[in-house]
Design a protein around this nucleic acid. Structure first.
Lengths: 225, 225
DNA sequence: TGTTTATATGACTACCTGGTCACATGATGA
DNA sequence: TCATCATGTGACCAGGTAGTCATATAAACA
């Protein structure tokens, strides 16, 4: 278990005037988003900020702590935008609506915080990120933890095909959603859907089209059409 | 367009005794697979090989040329294992069988050349890979280029739902297949399917289960059940 | 044999990194 | 005004990188 202390900046950083603090946070997330963890250069950050190298080490213990702090900001942002399944989400006839809601939250997140999403993608695929497994799992909303129980409940009550195992349901949704969002954010992964830098309307149309297919493939037939 | 020359090692390298050449190639692909492009250390490679740094630069022009050469090896391997659509692949009632064949080729590839697959994954998600867009697109077999025309033909002749656009068909297959193979090769992406390091039988069962869902969601109904 | 050509070598350069630390500056309170 | 404490600084360190080059060795040919 990661000690939360690790992600904490020193008091000095918290004492900073908010304007300056935010300016530094912005520069840090930008650097990690552009370069990933290992290649991110603190020399570069301080140069661009016009502050001294030593100052950064007055604010944080080391590079790892800086990264974890930045990633923690991302995690909070995500959680504030998606949240946990609500009471309505548990109704089996609302299953696909919930999928749509979370999916859309992902699109909005990328529109609003593209740099943080880039940070996340880098963390997802770079090796030797500090505490990768844990920080990734904290934010993997589109996975077993979120949709698993919902899918199980929906399947139990006829909202999903009984012959498709829950892990397969979750896998399909996860794969489609993840890949969709990556294509939306990273053009070179976008082979045919032409989502890259697309406007929201177009993205949502693509999303609905895909959800429709998932519904056909996974849905429980006539009961909740 | 990338000049093919760039990927060519110098004549000196080709003159090497095959044993030595293969030993060097192996060390190079291992390094790039483990560390990605930027972090890969040629110092480390020569140290492990017990040869001089200068020798490497007798064989190749620079790091970029080395990487492109190694990636070219990967591309050839893939192409030799999947090939192009055969005459049988074009029969619309064979569409899902073709999907299955290519998918299975992916699994076999990972089993047989895990290091090369790791190399590919790193190239896919690292930034600032030399000529990334082009070398990636050369190997994205599970995309528009391979399945697009097949899907269009199958759709035309009733093998696929007419109300699902071809790009969406390809996207779904691509997303599921890609994610499946990544999960198969990288445990931390494997949320629920428990594919990581699974035996082939289990992997194929998972694959069939997913293809069945795709068939239900995308298939043309009764005509080719 | 001697001479030319191909290959192997590793010290070296220039440049980058994260991190340190003795010191300078600013603020606060007596 | 002086003393204390918080904050800011940048030269410096050890260690890493890709790439170079004069020199040594080996092979091939005369």
């Amino acid at each position: 278990m990661m000690k939360n202390e690790l992600t904490k900046p020193k008091q000095t950083f918290l004492n900073l005037a908010e304007e300056k603090r935010l300016r530094i946070e912005k520069a840090l997330v930008e650097e990690f988003a552009r370069e990933g963890y290992r290649r991110a250069s603190l020399n570069n950050v301080v140069k661009r900020l016009g502050i001294a190298k030593g100052s950064l080490y007055q604010y944080f213990d080391n590079k790892e702590a800086i990264f974890l702090f930045v990633f923690e900001r991302f995690t909070r942002l995500v959680k504030s935008m998606v949240g946990k399944p609500s009471a309505a989400d548990w109704r089996p006839d609302n299953f696909w609506q919930t999928v749509r809601r979370v999916w859309e939250a992902g699109i909005i997140f990328i529109d609003r915080h593209p740099v943080y999403y880039q940070l996340y993608l880098n963390a997802l695929f770079e090796q030797d990120i500090p505490h990768r497994e844990e920080i990734i799992s904290r934010v993997r909303l589109f996975s077993m933890e979120f949709f698993g129980p919902l899918a199980a409940a929906a399947r139990e009550r006829g909202g999903l095909r009984p012959d498709v195992p829950v892990p397969v349901v979750v896998f399909m949704i996860d794969a489609a959603m993840d890949r969709f969002l990556q294509s939306y954010a990273r053009s070179y992964l976008d082979d045919g859907l032409k989502l890259a830098a697309a406007d929201r309307a177009r993205a949502e149309a693509g999303m609905d089209s895909i959800i429709e297919v998932l519904k056909n493939g996974l849905g429980g037939g006539q009961r909740y059409p």
